[in-house]
C-alpha cells in the first residue's frame, strides 16, 4: 500500500484487480480543501485510460514491477512477439495495447519491457531513435531550400515529413513521441 500522494508517473497500481500504469499525475489543492491528486491511468491490457481523483492521504494498492530486456521478433497483425534474451522464452503482447508501436520498433532490436508477474505493462522506446529512410522522392532541383519538406517512409513503415535534402537510404533521427524528424545522421 502507498499513499495516493506518493504515486508518480510510471507507478503501477492494482485497481479492482486490474493492473494500471500512471501516465499523468497532477496535485490539486482546492481552496479551503484537503490535498488531492488527479491521476490518469492506463490499462496495458486494453489500452483503456481511466481518470481517478484521490485524496493525497488515501491508500492505493501498488504492485511491484520489474524491467526486463526483450528482443522484438515480429508482429502477426494482432500480437507483437518478443523473446527473453536470457532464457529464449517467447511472449506475445496484443498490438492494440500499444498503438503505433509497430511503426516504432525495429525487428531484432532489444527493448526494455516493464512487467508485473507475466503481464507486460509497458514497452520502453527511447525518445530519439535513428531509422533508415526506405522511401522518399528525390528533391526537385531548386526545392532544396530550407523549410521545404516532403513525405518519407522509414524502415519500420513509419511515415514522417523530412527536409527536401534527405535521400533514400540515408539515416534520420526521429522523436518517437511526436514522430517528427530531428536531424540527418551521417555514416
Amino acid at each position: 500500500m502507498i499513499k495516493a500522494g506518493q504515486i508518480e508517473k510510471g507507478t503501477a497500481l492494482l485497481i479492482k484487480g486490474q493492473p494500471f500504469l500512471c501516465i499523468e499525475r497532477e496535485f490539486v489543492n482546492p481552496g479551503k480543501g484537503s490535498a488531492f491528486v488527479r491521476l490518469k491511468l492506463k490499462s496495458p491490457a486494453t489500452g483503456q485510460t481511466l481518470s481517478e481523483t484521490m485524496k493525497s492521504q488515501d491508500n492505493a494498492e501498488d504492485i511491484s514491477i520489474e524491467d526486463r530486456d526483450f528482443q522484438y521478433l515480429y508482429n502477426d497483425g494482432e500480437n507483437f512477439s518478443f523473446m527473453n534474451t536470457e532464457n529464449y522464452e517467447q511472449i506475445e503482447v496484443p498490438m492494440k495495447s500499444f498503438p503505433d508501436y509497430e511503426y516504432l520498433m525495429k525487428e531484432g532490436e532489444s527493448y526494455r519491457v516493464t512487467m508485473w508477474e507475466d503481464q507486460v505493462l509497458d514497452i520502453q522506446i527511447p525518445s530519439k531513435v535513428v531509422y533508415v529512410v526506405t522511401e522518399t522522392e528525390d528533391a526537385v532541383r531548386g526545392d532544396t531550400v530550407q523549410g521545404v519538406t516532403k513525405d518519407a517512409v522509414l524502415e519500420t513503415g513509419l511515415k514522417i515529413r523530412v527536409p527536401g535534402f534527405i535521400k533514400q537510404g540515408e539515416k534520420v533521427r526521429v522523436n518517437t513521441e511526436t514522430k517528427e524528424y530531428i536531424e540527418r545522421v551521417n555514416s
Binding site: 482546492p30 479551503k32 484537503s34 488527479r38 481523483t53
Partner: peptide, 15 residues
C-alpha cells in the same frame, strides 16, 4: 461532507 464534495468537484467539475 467537504472532502466528499471536493472529490466530486475535482473529479467532475473543476477539470
Amino acid at each position: 461532507w467537504d472532502d466528499t464534495f471536493n472529490r466530486i468537484f475535482i473529479n467532475n467539475v473543476e477539470c
